[in-house]
């Protein structure tokens, strides 16, 4: 796929792009990811209320991943949480955690009054899938754009 639109393509046709972030198990970086996801969503034409939802859901997934990584001593240079944000008539966010988030959520929130981050995501979104295989988890979330063409 070309990185930039060619002159023959309609505006916005080739603007589909992906922003990828890889961060370590540092709580301070969760805010960075959240702000980038919010900025990409806004640029993709997602309405303001949903931009808040994007920031919350992405923040929840990353906060849970960071706490799970810390709990499992995955704090080395090679231990990375990867977040891919695809801008295409809205956005799709995929969070790849090197640790089982569903198991961590169960362990960390046993007996608590309030739900874990994954429960918040499931409560916020209809369009979400969470899968885990014991070694890691993948959280996929998407939001539609409010307008046909992304704003620049």
């Amino acid at each position: 796929m070309p990185l930039l639109p060619t002159p023959n393509e309609p505006p916005g046709a080739a603007l589909m792009s992906q922003v990828s972030l890889a961060v370590g198990a540092d709580p301070a970086h969760v805010r960075v990811v959240r702000l980038v996801a919010g900025a990409v969503a806004r640029r993709a034409g997602v309405d303001e209320e949903s931009v808040d939802e994007v920031k919350l859901a992405v923040g929840e997934a990353c906060a849970l991943a960071v706490s799970a990584m810390q709990a499992h001593d995955l704090t080395g240079h090679a231990d990375r949480l990867v977040v891919e944000i695809e801008d295409d008539a809205g956005i799709e966010v995929v969070v790849r955690a090197p640790v089982d988030l569903e198991q961590h959520a169960l362990d960390a929130h046993a007996g608590e009054l309030f739900p874990d981050g994954l429960a918040v995501i499931r409560g916020l979104l209809d369009d979400v899938s969470i899968s885990s295989d014991g070694a890691g988890s993948l959280v996929r979330m998407s939001w539609a754009a409010e307008v046909a063409h992304p704003t620049v």
Binding site: R34, K55, G59, A63, F114, P115, A119
Partner: peptide, 16 residues
Amino acid sequence: DFLDSTGLGVLVGGLK
């Protein structure tokens, strides 16, 4: 401006 489930956990902890 922003509150997530970690913050909710702190509020619940305060309540307890």
